[in-house]
Design a protein around this nucleic acid. Structure first.
Lengths: 171, 171
DNA sequence: TATTGTTATACTCTATAACTATA
DNA sequence: TATAGTTATAGAGTATAACAATA
């Protein structure tokens, strides 16, 4: 039962690495998106509202991994600023389609350009080719299904862990 | 000022991609780390406590991107479970070195094995070679300085954005 | 009966400020 | 005076539950 030999056992931890990069992006993006409600997520809602085929709040919320109740507040704020509107869905009168206004499209475009510079800054430690590779691989991961939904595999992992639970107590 | 032609403008957004992967990891890791206080971050503190050279709370907090006040609670919980101890630092009596106990080392090792399976599950959409490349590039980014600290570049980006601010009001 | 969206409430998490003890 | 850590408080963010309208 030896201690970790290396000085920093975290450098092999995917969770730590993803967390560092995630926080770096959010911190940098927050500076650029200061005037936009909701920070990066408000921008992402606005981006979704700029898509060719408008979608309803629930669909956008699922895509962005946020609760639908939070989506209500985000859309409220964006609508109050005149950046998006809630359009009734002829096919389902319960549903509200979120659509960007002209001002919303313009606001999104200027933010997108600024965010691209932030992204370049974030990827600066990589060469141009490496950055392109990183984007491609990251997109593959992001667009694939979420591993949490691999219920069976997760259950097997947790079950295999059970015998060791006494190490941490039951609290 | 045309609407986005593609169906999903988010698929080119680095922030969206990193966010999706980050949430996927946290959700999956939470299942494996259910008994450990603080979830993935509690695990990361425990990992830091397993390092060869013990460090104090502030240094660990900075590495993990969490506030030092939060660190106090995390270490409290881990110490209560007997996984770490606060050892006085002979060189500076204000400082508390966080050191894993034998039980802490054992708990961390079993969790690390489970987390490796979670990581493999997360990276399943990639081939073996691609996954290795992704880890390497991600580590390079995570170990590099944070872009927020590139104060000058950030200021230039924000300044260039200023003329467009009227699109979003001043709230 | 299930689903979309809203509202109100409660909860968690995080940050702020004040304090102690060291340096 | 500045720093490491703690504590208490307040604030932001988030989730839970109940509700209305529609399917």
């Amino acid at each position: 039962m030896e201690r970790d030999a290396g000085g920093t056992p975290l450098h092999d931890d995917l969770g730590w690495m993803v967390g560092v990069v995630f926080r770096s992006y959010v911190d940098a993006a927050d500076q650029v998106l200061a005037e936009l409600p909701g920070g990066p997520r408000g921008y992402q809602v606005l981006s979704a509202a700029c898509a060719a085929r408008p979608r309803n709040q629930g669909a956008i919320a699922e895509d962005l991994g946020i609760d639908r109740t939070v989506m209500t507040y985000l859309v409220d704020d964006l609508e109050r600023l005149g950046l998006v509107v809630r359009r009734p869905d002829a096919a389902d009168r319960r549903s509200r389609l979120v659509v960007a206004t002209d001002a919303g499209v313009a606001a999104r475009e200027s933010r997108r350009d600024a965010l691209r510079q932030v992204e370049d800054l974030l990827l600066q430690p990589l060469s141009g080719a490496e950055a392109a590779t990183f984007r491609t691989l990251l997109r593959t991961l992001a667009c694939a299904g979420r591993p949490v939904e691999h219920v069976e595999e997760m259950c097997r992992i947790v079950e295999r862990l059970e015998p060791d639970r006494q190490h941490t107590g039951t609290a």
